[in-house]
Design a protein around this nucleic acid. Structure first.
Lengths: 216, 216, 216, 216
DNA sequence: GATGAATGAGAATTCATTCAT
DNA sequence: TATGAATGAATTCTCATTCAT
């Protein structure tokens, strides 16, 4: 299997450069991650079994363990992979901000854009009819939250943000971001700009500053 | 039963039909619920087993099944019980509101007060080191969210709230409430008034209207 | 319960004669037996639980144990009760027989008549879609079989029956009786005379002596 | 798989696809069936547990479920396996019959021969000290009974058998066969010819035509 | 005697993980 | 490395039986 480049005898296989192997390994790892994202989103973390994941793959059960030590590890890999991708973007956005407006708008816009383009992963985190809200505490995610908080503190120190309870502010941004992201994904079409505008307006001017509704 | 010849002493018993039995049944149910709250909060929903719950009790394993059919059922009972308690209070608060300030402030104040006095249950919902974010979709909770949304819509219709995206607004209130509640519970002392003031100010005036920080 | 003779105060109860109690006891025992017959016939011996039996009764679970020590005991009671009723009749029939015709015809006729009038109990023994063929080895039943065999031997000794393998003959009579009884009960109307005629003819003259069919 | 470079030595392997695996799988299935036959015969269907079966095996408990979903399934597999083996033989015997004698004698002879050589399976169906008479209603067995009945009807239509109640006749043959088979197995030596002779004589000429006894 | 909730031994079943091939 | 059957500890759940009232 996966011998699509084989031309003659398998003797050639023996000399295949590391590169080929690497790619197969990567492909398997990706296949497992993709299947896991799917299954977690469908069944929820608690209810999915390793068997469910490999069944959604064309690999054998034992192969799973060449890549991940456990269900927990593959789950963290999903979360981290996602966080690894979005964290630097969020960070860059906040650092570049020259005003409170840019700080808030840039953060939300980046987050909602990311969610919209990576629905698969976010679905894992969604509240949904049969699932659980999943762990938000992989190192990468916690680091992301801490990073947000320390950026808020720094911004307050620099006079960019008004001084306030940074902890609550961070929590509020996270809460609004995740809950609205869920709502956003349930709408058709998915409109990250609208979500970002709403959240930004709320944080900049409160309820009275919210944009007029575009959604029924 | 078998008390038909009792003449005097049974007068007291008359108030406890079936006597101690009835009381034991209720007490056992409560014991299981309390243990479950505890264990869920400690291990997370996914990781706790029915055995863990009964082990945290002085009851026998079989007894669990006299009261609940499964882990899922006891979990929903916890959620529902809690939602059943707080929902009417939130509703009343919103209905009594005569202004946007009252609507927002009353809702948050009631919610944070409730969380502060019922930490056990809320802990089940907390993000915590080894746990999952739990199902927020028991009928009672979903109904609570829907109720909030429809009250928001009504308030907008009546001109009490400025017209905006009610769905996002509901989601934002929920997100801020839950995330800040978590933070609130991690502080010493737990201060629901401070949390409510923060959230209220955010929703009424945005980030620039937030109270000065009282927490490091 | 069962207070139909109560006229006034319950004080009277205290003085009730043994008789009254006796009747209640008997009634309870019968209620349990009737329920058990039902449930065994519906679920099969293996699948029925003591709970199933008492649930089919208006008694409490504990009460079962005032009457029977176990599921096994109540089952044997059913079998025995039935065997106790039919055994003497079968025996009398065989003893009274003055010819091979009377021996065979009398036995089958008595058996099929009994089954037709006591379908409830026999149903317990029926092969049926979800059930098991039940124990045929309560003391009473075994004794009935042994009795049949020794009566056969005696009849052979007396020249009433031709000498043959008594063991196989007994087995054949039992096999034909039980299997045909099942068939008989599935027909409408239930016709013990026809079944008896068939079995008798078979034993007296073989397949060529069978009566012309009356059943499609 | 992974054998594509084998040039010489693998010729032998070619007959054992997946090599030892396949053999092990079959062997395990057989081991479970053999153990189950044993245990069912010893304890009866109702009393045996899946644990009893695997304990009679050198396999692990979980392995049982790789092969059968439940006790019921393994039981039916035993019954069916047996019926699958004997049904065609019985059928062939009946079809080949050119006279009523051949029809009856061939059927009984084939049945008793089969039981004598497959005591293990038949024991499962035996009435025995602690057991229940087991389900005789697996699809294969029911089909076997129906097949017998329709062959009887056909034989009557063709004038091979005298016209009589085919349903009762089928039931009688089954009853005599099973009950006498039990008796036969309890004797030493097991003598299928004697059992067949007895049953055949009974069906052809009735009680007066039975062979003289050879058994005490 | 009657009641029915509590008990806990043990049955059925699942599933992460190992390991021979 | 991939495979997938075997493993067996852990889990869920059942149910006969006890016992306080």
């Amino acid at each position: 299997m996966t011998t699509e480049t084989d031309s003659g005898a398998s003797a050639v296989m023996a000399h295949l450069p590391k590169g080929k192997r690497e790619r197969t390994k990567l492909a398997n790892r990706e296949a497992i991650l993709a299947a896991a994202r799917d299954v977690f989103a469908r069944l929820g973390y608690g209810a999915t079994t390793v068997r469910d994941i490999i069944r959604a793959t064309d690999l054998a059960s034992g192969t799973f363990y060449n890549y991940f030590k456990s269900k927990e590890e593959v789950f963290e890999a999903i979360q981290d992979e996602s966080a690894v991708r979005v964290r630097p973007r969020l960070r860059a956005e906040r650092i570049r901000a020259k005003s409170v407006e840019e700080f808030i708008a840039g953060s939300f816009r980046t987050f909602f854009d990311y969610v919209a383009t990576d629905r698969g992963t976010f679905a894992v985190m969604r509240r949904n009819a049969d699932t659980v809200r999943v762990r938000m505490d992989t190192p990468e995610i916690i680091a992301g939250f801490d990073e947000l908080k320390s950026d808020i503190v720094r911004a307050m120190d620099e006079g960019l943000l008004p001084r306030a309870d940074a902890d609550f502010l961070m929590a509020s941004m996270v809460g609004v971001a995740f809950e609205c992201a869920e709502r956003m994904l349930k709408r058709e079409p998915v409109d990250p700009a609208a979500a970002a505008d709403f959240a930004t307006a709320l944080f900049l001017g409160g309820i009275r500053a919210l944009p007029k509704p575009t959604h029924s």
